Simulated scan of single mutants.
Amino acid sequence: MCAPALVQPLSIRLRECPAQAHEHAEGSDFMTSLLGGDATPEAFTALTAQLYYVYDALEAAMRRHRESVWAGQIYDARLERRDAIATDLAFLLGPGWREEITPLPATRRYVERLEEADEIGVIGHHYVRYLGDVAGGQVIATMMQRLYGVSPEGLSFYDFSALGKIKPFRDDYRAALDGLDLTDAQAAALTDEAELAFALNSDVFADLAGEPAL
């Protein structure tokens, strides 16, 4: 059980409360296989394809709210990944990549949630996706090169060099979260949405594990 929302800084609450859902996503069969070297380059490409739909929806949602009181304090165009993923897919699948990919059922549900989420909800998804990407992106890119021979031209998604040093960026991001003027109920709703975001990612991984690779 999490402490009441106002007892802890929001950044701490977001780290601790969804911890079990976070571990479940990271420990999914698909990700365990991919990061353990037991998958294929095609599995990596399949993941990249699903992420295109997720980030297209997430970034459209964040742009809708970027002038708002709370989202405006979190929004940073340097984080946006959709165009980088498109570049990766063009390299991995060729210029006709859009005709070769389709969202899995879990991805469609994820997108629907992002499309219907309010400002508080979008911030929860923003935290889950981007802070995780920034934290582990370079490690994953290195592993994909080493394990599957993926060329750097197919790994633009994981390049956050535009942010500068990662630790100061992450510290500033957490400070911005802690500075949001939320009620207890709003902070709790944001944390709940972050937990849902991890569950939605787990569902996408489960669908990927059950699908033939591209």
Rank of each mutant, 00 (worst) to 15 (best):
L6S: 11
L10N: 09
I12W: 00
I12F: 00
R13P: 00
R13A: 11
L14A: 07
R15V: 04
C17F: 00
P18G: 09
H22Y: 09
E23L: 13
E23A: 15
H24C: 05
E26C: 04
G27M: 06
G27E: 12
D29E: 14
S33T: 13
L35V: 09
G36D: 07
G36L: 08
G36Y: 09
G37W: 12
D38P: 00
D38Q: 15
T40L: 06
E42K: 13
A43F: 06
A49S: 14
L51R: 13
L51F: 11
Y55Q: 02
D56F: 02
L58V: 04
E59D: 04
R63A: 08
R64S: 10
R64I: 01
H65E: 11
E67M: 08
S68P: 00
S68H: 14
V69P: 01
W70Y: 14
W70Q: 12
A71T: 14
I74Y: 03
Y75C: 10
Y75F: 15
D76G: 08
A77W: 04
R78L: 05
R78W: 05
L79W: 05
R81P: 04
I85N: 02
I85H: 07
A86P: 01
A86D: 02
T87L: 10
F91R: 06
F91K: 02
F91N: 05
L92P: 06
L93A: 10
P95W: 01
R98Y: 01
E100P: 00
P103C: 08
P103L: 07
P105D: 12
P105T: 11
A106V: 11
R108P: 01
V111E: 05
E112R: 14
E112L: 09
R113W: 02
R113H: 10
R113E: 09
E116Q: 15
E119V: 10
G124F: 09
Y127R: 02
Y127N: 07
V128S: 03
R129A: 08
Y130L: 05
Y130K: 04
G132L: 07
D133M: 05
V134D: 04
V134W: 08
